[in-house]
């Protein structure tokens, strides 16, 4: 007896056609995202070096080698400091400036352009400038501090442990705040003016308005911004590599993975480090997805 096929509705037919249009994009995404991840994961279980021919399965050895390296613990600590303090710094600064730009004042357009500069200037150009500004012999920061009488001997900003991490963190915040500022500014502009007018009629103070209207209205944007900022900062590389090359105890997990792979020429250890980074990022991604789902349910 022949099987009777149910006739597809017009909508189902459209969906089926639509899905096929997605195949090429999915194929490209698989190639550029899934393949490198799977490849790195595989690589982390093999002895795999660019100076040797052939690869040999070594199990978890690469992971043990990475975890017993003195720099690993330092890099985890620095990554969390860099990601969380960096994200907070960017959000606080971004929020302050977004609030400022949300007000009408003469020259607002120019101010907005100027405040976007750290994001617009090519990274290598701005980091070269920071490198010179932090210089321990002729850096402008040392000169200014010295002329103000705040220091008697020049500070080796990028050479002293702790100070170097603070400096790269500061530069990271400086480079990342404009993005936060723009996201929060967009959020601020979407808050209905009626709410502020009602609060004014009720006699609410500025702080009360900020905490009872602005922050709750921005909660969705804020949550996304914080998580995204942590993920982006977690993936940071160029600030630290170009300013300190991981010296003075400033390695974060990404720079260490790079050093394993391309400086020490141990792709296997670099892959093990990358998989470890992926594990942490997956946690943040899970939190982000969960928060988004909760928001959409609300």
């Amino acid at each position: 007896m022949p099987i009777l096929r149910r006739k597809l509705t017009l909508e189902e037919k459209d969906n089926a056609i639509g899905r096929r249009f997605l195949y090429p994009a999915l194929f490209v995404l698989l190639c550029i995202i899934a393949f490198p991840v799977i490849y790195s994961f595989t690589l982390s279980f093999f002895r795999w070096r660019p100076t040797e021919v052939g690869h040999r399965f070594v199990g978890l050895k690469n992971y043990f080698d990475v975890y017993k390296d003195d720099r690993f613990v330092v890099s985890i600590f620095n990554t969390f400091i860099y990601a969380f303090v960096g994200a907070c710094g960017k959000i606080v600064l971004g929020m302050g400036l977004a609030l400022l730009l949300n007000k009408k004042f003469p020259g607002r357009a120019i101010a907005r352009t100027l405040l976007m500069l750290p994001w617009i200037i090519p990274v290598t150009a701005s980091l070269t400038a920071w490198n010179w500004m932090f210089d321990g012999m002729y850096g402008v920061i040392n000169i200014v501090l010295s002329r103000m009488g705040l220091i008697s001997t020049y500070i080796n900003f990028l050479g002293e442990k702790g100070v170097a991490l603070a400096c790269v963190l500061m530069v990271g915040i400086w480079m990342g705040y404009p993005q936060m500022m723009m996201m929060l500014l967009a959020g601020l502009q979407a808050i209905p003016g009626d709410l502020y007018e009602a609060a004014e009629v009720e006699g609410a103070g500025k702080l009360r308005v900020f905490f009872s209207i602005t922050i709750p209205s921005l909660s969705g944007v804020l949550k996304t911004s914080i998580i995204l900022s942590i993920i982006w900062t977690f993936n940071a590389f160029n600030v630290i590599w170009l300013l300190t090359r991981g010296g003075s105890s400033t390695h974060i997990m990404n720079t260490l993975a790079y050093e394993f792979s391309f400086i020490n020429m141990r792709y296997d250890k670099g892959a093990a480090m990358s998989v470890t980074i992926l594990f942490f990022l997956a946690i943040f991604l899970y939190i982000h997805t969960k928060m988004q789902r909760e928001d959409s349910l609300q």
Binding site: Y154, N156, G159
Partner: peptide, 21 residues
Amino acid sequence: VPAAAITWDGGSNNNFFIAGD
């Protein structure tokens, strides 16, 4: 040796020598 030598890059020593420092 200047204390800043711990953060020098590949061009620093040449530049400071050429500059006369």
